[in-house]
Design a binder for these strands. Structure first.
Lengths: 234, 234
DNA sequence: GATTGTCGAACGAACGTTCGTTCGTCAATT
DNA sequence: AATTGACGAACGAACGTTCGTTCGACAATC
């Protein structure tokens, strides 16, 4: 990659960072290109050297975010054979990512509908791919639980599995709305609470508590950065 | 109430209905007063006979919604002595309300930050009051679970209780993002899935399954309507 | 019972501002 | 000499809001 392209990519990334912050604060329609220009230090018109329109800027932001999320989830997929532990890794990765990039998270959740129809489909398919990864992790835990001798549950229907998966995503996605580092513990605490609720529930005796044992420090704890910055900047 | 006032209230309610739908679709900043005028059949300026500003319209929408939610939750609070069953009623009420009024729900979740500072505080206190109701229900289930002899859990710390409560709210609040009546079962199915996940988890043997027994058909199933319409008008 | 006055309610037009976007220019880099 | 990238100026459109006016219903007056 020529230094020309590197510099261009760097500045596109900077603009996306600033845009994520502003959109998270005021919504897509609430952020003006003049706001974004002031935040980045560019003139208003210079932004159009990097993105064709305001909408394409939003689309690029969401696409990059989901691609990063999917890559991180895939990387740490087959680390451990235990289903409950794998689910914990999945939950923790996403929780920490959302806590580290709260503004991007808000954009992902809030502004899917603001996209033009063309980019909508691309983002939706990425979202569905990510959902399937999560559902596989949930299904594995489900199957493992059903295999225990003292439960008489039959095989889980697909609809119920979908509902359970969406509910678990709900717990994770809602973190942006309430989490305060000074009030609610570490990201690990949050991930443990969610995982424990998902696997064991509020009152049941928990047959699998993988939250205690430490995670492999490699891929699972790898720092995922949505909009990658060049080394040395900021 | 004089028929004059009744008519005025009726039309305020109509406008709020239309606004909820438009804001849910495009966001607060994405809805223009001209859009709202066209949707309601009023002229643009006539809207200002009913609301002082666009922001006050949003504030009124949110305040009414939370007041309705709180009233419904309070009504069905002490129906049954069983903690798990009470939690189910709480979950089901909110799930059904969100399914019936998906647009209002989206406004509540998305547009809290768009409020001016004055109304912000009022909405926030309502939200906190509602949270406390939910947390009490969760705490009761927690305490009941801890009392069972085969678990060795100590008393639940306040922080963990908060995290669990927020997570359960997350499952419920996320429903708007995925629920499709033709794909994901009835509202009762959704509430049962969430409640089962909250109380029993994915794999644990469930000590309390109150979802099977029917609910009292009175207050718990009472239809809650956010923006009350006069009888007889569509 | 006709006339008059009051007032709420709805409107079109226009306000000043801000929106996203385009264009021509010009300095800096290659 | 050629290309890139940053810029201010300007565009038409749309924004939230205000204004003056009009219309029709209802009570009080004659």
């Amino acid at each position: 990659m020529t230094p020309r392209q590197a510099r261009l990519e760097q500045q596109r990334s900077d603009i996306l960072h600033a845009a994520a912050s502003l959109i998270a604060e005021r919504g897509f329609h609430g952020m003006s290109m003049r706001d974004l220009a002031e935040a980045t230090g560019f003139g208003v018109s210079s932004l159009y050297n990097y993105f064709a329109s305001k909408e394409e800027l939003l689309a690029e932001l969401q696409i990059r975010a989901f691609e990063t999320l999917i890559a991180a989830a895939n990387d740490s997929r087959q680390e451990t054979p235990d289903a409950a532990a794998r689910l914990y890794v999945f939950i923790f990765n996403q929780v920490r990512y959302f806590i580290d990039h709260a503004d991007v998270m808000r954009v992902l959740i809030h502004e899917a509908a603001a996209l033009p129809a063309e980019h909508r489909q691309r983002v939706r398919s990425l979202k569905e791919a990510y959902f399937r990864i999560g559902r596989d992790a949930v299904a594995a835990v489900f199957a493992q639980g059903c295999a225990t001798p003292d439960t008489a549950r039959g095989p889980v229907e697909a609809v119920a599995l979908d509902r359970a998966t969406y509910s678990i995503f709900g717990m994770i996605n809602w973190v942006w709305a309430w989490y305060e580092p000074t009030l609610h513990g570490t990201p690990e605490d949050v991930a443990r609470s969610i995982h424990s609720l998902a696997v064991c529930g509020l009152v049941a005796r928990c047959p699998a508590s993988p939250s205690q044992e430490e995670l492999p420090p490699g891929l699972a704890h790898r720092q995922v950065s949505l909009l990658k910055r060049q080394a040395g900047t900021k």
